[in-house]
Design a protein around this nucleic acid. Structure first.
Lengths: 110, 110
DNA sequence: TTATCATATGAACAAATGAACATATGTTAT
DNA sequence: ATAACATATGTTCATTTGTTCATATGATAA
């Protein structure tokens, strides 16, 4: 695979690229949005906080499946939770979720 | 799995949820951003259009791997291409890419 | 304490995914 | 025509991912 010359281009572009770890973290964040179950959970939480079993009922999925996904969303800091007795309520952690999903919706609506 | 009652909540929330196909399309879009190779390609194209072999050289990956990923990016309408002789140049299809990645960067920088 | 409800977690498994290799297609030059 | 270069594609393989099942933890009530 001999190729033509791009030495100038490569030095220019690589100078602007964030570190590998940053780009890895960024792609990991987006991969959290890259599953329809998690997108549905996030969309549901646009309205209001919800407990785990309500989300499970809404999506017609098992409590376990939802709990596993909520764990991922929590680790990505997209949702937070608060406990009230036996019940744990989940809610959106910040407004980036709304704007990221909003931009995604704009893109596919064209 | 008997649960407590959420009938009111469920009817409220499900009224606001987009159709399943829309949410599936949305998650598929984000899953395209959810890979570090593709994120790097997109970031490289922030600067300027690039040919396939330049991207391969920049990312130190095979031309085949890059070409496969570019196909995905093209299908998601995140990049477009133009041919000039033997060379195919890829460039960002629109500005949603920048704003989506920008929002993602904001989220992880906290 | 025991029973029950709500949630979390670990293991197992099928399905999806990313990369490598080999090869095919398309373009230009000789 | 053939050769060389740039890109695309098909197949294979290892790894990752999402769900289910079984079980554990946490909280409340009797």
């Amino acid at each position: 695979m001999k190729t033509h010359d791009h030495s100038k281009l490569l030095s220019d572009v690589s100078g602007q690229m964030p570190a590998d770890e940053v780009l890895a973290e960024l792609s990991e964040l987006f991969s959290v949005f890259g599953d329809s179950t998690r997108i549905k959970i996030l969309w549901a939480l646009f309205e209001r906080e919800m407990c785990v079993c309500a989300i499970a009922e809404l999506l017609k999925m098992t409590q376990s499946a939802i709990s596993h996904q909520l764990k991922l969303l929590r680790h990505a800091k997209l949702v937070s939770s608060r406990r009230e007795g036996k019940t744990v309520y989940y809610f959106l952690a910040d407004d980036h979720v709304r704007s990221i999903i909003g931009q995604g919706m704009e893109h596919i609506s064209e």
